[in-house]
Simulated assay, not measured.
Amino acid sequence: MTRWLRQHRYACLSALRRLWSQPFSSLSNILVISLTLAIPIIAASVLVSAQPVVKQIPVSPEVTLFLQPGAKPDKAAELARQLQEEHSQEVQTVRVVAREDAMKTLKANPAWADALSVLPGNPLPDAVVVTLHESPDLAKQASLLAEKWRKLEHVDVVQLDSEWVRRLEAILGFVRIGLWLLALGVALVVLATVFNTVRMQALTQREEIGVARLVGATESFVRRPFLYLGALTGVISSIAAIALSALALNPLNAALARLANSYGTQVVLRLPEALNLLLAVVVIAILAALSARWSVTRNTRF
């Protein structure tokens, strides 16, 4: 156990010496990775900080049930109670729009007032407007409920705001794909930068590695310092990226505060939770170590 710890201590110190021996090259690589990592961190900060504001925006679709023209006035209220009781898990609110109220609303609009004034009566039906709760599969759930409610007694037409739901899901899907592509791009930058760094180190120390093999050094002993070099590069770059993101949020918050005040609200961008940031640092370190292993395996075969 003591020997194993001594070997890893040697590999870690050797990796630190290699970073320190070429400060300009090391700093350039760390800066490239840090700036790349700062982009998804800032994007995650925006998403995390915007969630409380987004939750205040009504995003649940409405399903409108138009009753048959000959239905009695009390049927709408009865249908509203029925829907609320039978679908309490899916339904958020239910309200009844009487035909007289709907007519008054249309007549208040100058564009409809002249056309409605020539009608002998009120052609509008009573309506029940149902607002659904948010759910992961909102569009499918709303469509199933609308299809079921079309078969109810005294219901003539069911209007579903499916177009709005499709647009919402399209936007969410676009955001998810964009984030995955961004994460993939960041991972490729980290892998490529660390791969090239370790490659140059391996070629520079070609003779030293050859001598170490001649005196009996194992492949693990030869490669271990390079793995630590990649992991340390990833850790230092991740910490630097978090620091750069925190600095970048200051001017962003100042500009956002002026915009939010004009709308009478307040939004502050904050970094993701410390646990998530720590997990990101670990993932980047693992990716960098894997890239270093791949590079040293390919470039020390001589």
Rank of each mutant, 00 (worst) to 15 (best):
D126C: 02
V128N: 00
T131I: 13
H133A: 10
H133N: 14
E134H: 05
E134S: 13
Q141L: 09
Q141A: 06
L144K: 13
L145Q: 08
L145F: 12
L145R: 01
A146G: 15
K148V: 01
W149L: 06
E153V: 09
E153I: 08
H154V: 04
V155E: 03
V157Q: 15
V157A: 08
V157W: 05
V157D: 06
V158H: 11
Q159H: 06
L160D: 05
L160P: 02
E163M: 06
R167A: 12
L168G: 03
L168S: 05
E169A: 06
E169M: 03
E169I: 09
A170S: 14
L172I: 11
G173T: 04
G173S: 12
V175C: 09
G178V: 08
G178H: 10
L179W: 14
L182F: 04
L184K: 04
A187F: 14
L188T: 11
V190Y: 01
L191Y: 02
L191R: 00
A192C: 13
A192M: 14
V194P: 02
V194S: 08
F195C: 05
T197Q: 09
V198Q: 10
Q201L: 14
Q201C: 08
Q201N: 15
A202L: 12
L203I: 11
L203M: 11
T204D: 06
T204S: 12
Q205Y: 11
E207W: 07
E208C: 00
E208K: 05
I209V: 15
G210M: 13
V211P: 07
V211W: 10
A212S: 15
A212I: 14
R213L: 07
R213T: 07
V215I: 15
G216T: 00
E219K: 03
S220M: 09
F221H: 08
V222S: 04
V222K: 05
P225H: 12
P225W: 13
F226T: 05
F226E: 02
L227F: 07
L227H: 06
Y228E: 01
Y228Q: 01
G230W: 05
A231H: 03
A231E: 07
L232Y: 05
I236C: 07
I239Y: 04
A241D: 00
A243I: 13
A243P: 02
A243L: 12
L244K: 06
L244Y: 02
L244H: 03
S245M: 09
L247R: 13
L247T: 12
L247G: 13
L249V: 11
P251N: 06
L252G: 13
A254V: 14
A254Y: 06
L256C: 01
R258Q: 13
A260M: 06
N261P: 00
N261T: 09
G264D: 02
V268T: 14
L269Y: 09
L269F: 15
